[in-house]
Amino acid sequence: MSETTTATGAIESKSWEQTEYAPVPGAPALATAKGYDLYRGDLDGDADWQGLMFAGPDGSGTFHSLQRTRGTLGGRTGSFVLELNGTFAATGESRADWRIVPGSGTGDLAGITGTGGYESGGSSATYTLIYRLP
């Protein structure tokens, strides 16, 4: 069995689009969102993501998304899919827990497994990915 490795670094959001769906006057908002991020640090690459969001009257809420992450991790190049579940505040802070979707690794990252997450203070985010490679 391979050894567990921890990767850390920063995420920079490069694009974000959000579209409300199923609106009801006075009810909390439901929306789809998609975006593109850059990863720097132990994971060097980029990611496209798309998800669902719920925003309450105070502007805070939850989200669930899938993200295809491409790049170099631990000297290996390929891609994998992250499943994210998180929360956000009206002030712009957010956090998420994630897991690598089993069987989603490609290239040198085939067989990767792992968990982790990120925390954002608004314009900047830091990530942790605890992973295993075969």
Rank of each mutant, 00 (worst) to 15 (best):
Q67M: 12
W49K: 03
G61T: 13
G103L: 00
E12A: 15
A27Q: 15
G117M: 03
G75Q: 07
V81I: 14
D42H: 06
G9S: 06
E119R: 14
G59R: 01
G117W: 08
S123G: 11
Y21N: 11
T115N: 02
M1T: 14
G86K: 05
R76E: 07
I11R: 04
W98K: 11
K34Q: 14
G78I: 03
P134K: 07
V81S: 03
P25I: 10
K34Y: 03
D44V: 13
D46W: 01
T87N: 05
G103M: 07
T128E: 15
T72K: 08
D46P: 03
K14T: 09
I100G: 00
S79N: 07
A7N: 05
R70F: 02
S60F: 03
A10F: 08
T113L: 04
R76W: 00
G103I: 09
G71A: 00
E12C: 00
Q18F: 02
W49V: 04
T113N: 00
A96D: 09
S123I: 07
T19Q: 15
P57Y: 04
A55S: 15
Y131C: 06
T113Q: 10
T5N: 14
D37K: 11
E20Q: 10
A125R: 09
A96R: 00
T91I: 08
T32M: 11
R99Y: 08
Y36M: 04
G117E: 00
G86V: 13
G78S: 07
V81E: 10
